[in-house]
């Protein structure tokens, strides 16, 4: 891969890779490290990318996902990645800003649910590309996404009610 090709790939996908890493790790420096390693992996092993299998974005996000997962495993060695029985508790809407509470809710999801949710909701990736990026069957991706949305609905429901009440109060004044 030439320097020019790498630069083209970088400028086309840097934000998607960085945003994904940032949402998965919740840390700017960690996201920078992951994004850097992702593009260096493309430079050093360009043969690993097969354009017939998936687009470049899916390939890069798959590399970033593996790096984020490696980091996560390093930090929480004994926690399982997938928690099918995980049930999220509703958040307290008075404890902070909406954006921070949403971030908290997404980041509290088990990693395998979080990654499919981030790719589907924030990166608008089609399900087949997500399946490639997370190295899972399409049915598994759908199931994880369904569970992630259910958990978020449960966690964020008080927030919607709280916001509605606040809007009604402002409207009545």
């Amino acid at each position: 891969m030439t320097d020019r090709e790498l630069r083209t790939a970088y400028h086309a996908h840097k934000d998607a890779v960085y945003r994904f890493a940032w949402r998965m790790t919740g840390s700017g420096p960690a996201a920078e490290d992951i994004a850097q390693e992702t593009f260096l992996a493309l430079l050093l092993n360009p043969d690993r990318f097969d354009p017939d299998r998936a687009p470049l974005r899916a390939f890069l996000l798959a590399v970033a996902r593996n790096l984020a997962r490696k980091q996560w495993r390093g930090e929480r060695r004994w926690s399982p990645l997938e928690e099918e029985t995980y049930v999220a508790l509703p958040l307290d809407p008075s404890s902070g800003e909406t954006s921070r509470l949403v971030a908290e809710a997404v980041q509290s999801l088990p990693p395998l649910q979080r990654e499919v949710l981030v790719l589907a909701e924030y990166e608008d990736m089609p399900l087949d590309e997500i399946a490639h990026a997370v190295d899972a069957e399409l049915g598994t991706v759908k199931a994880r996404l369904h569970r992630a949305r259910q958990n978020l609905r449960r966690m964020l429901a008080p927030l919607a009610t709280h916001n509605q009440k606040r809007l009604n109060t402002q409207w009545n004044r």
Binding site: R19, R23, S99, E121, L156
Partner: peptide, 14 residues
């Protein structure tokens, strides 16, 4: 609600 959580773009230092 999910759209309220914005992520920053890649920093220039990257």
């Amino acid at each position: 609600l999910l759209s309220r959580w914005d992520a920053p773009p890649a920093p220039p230092a990257l």
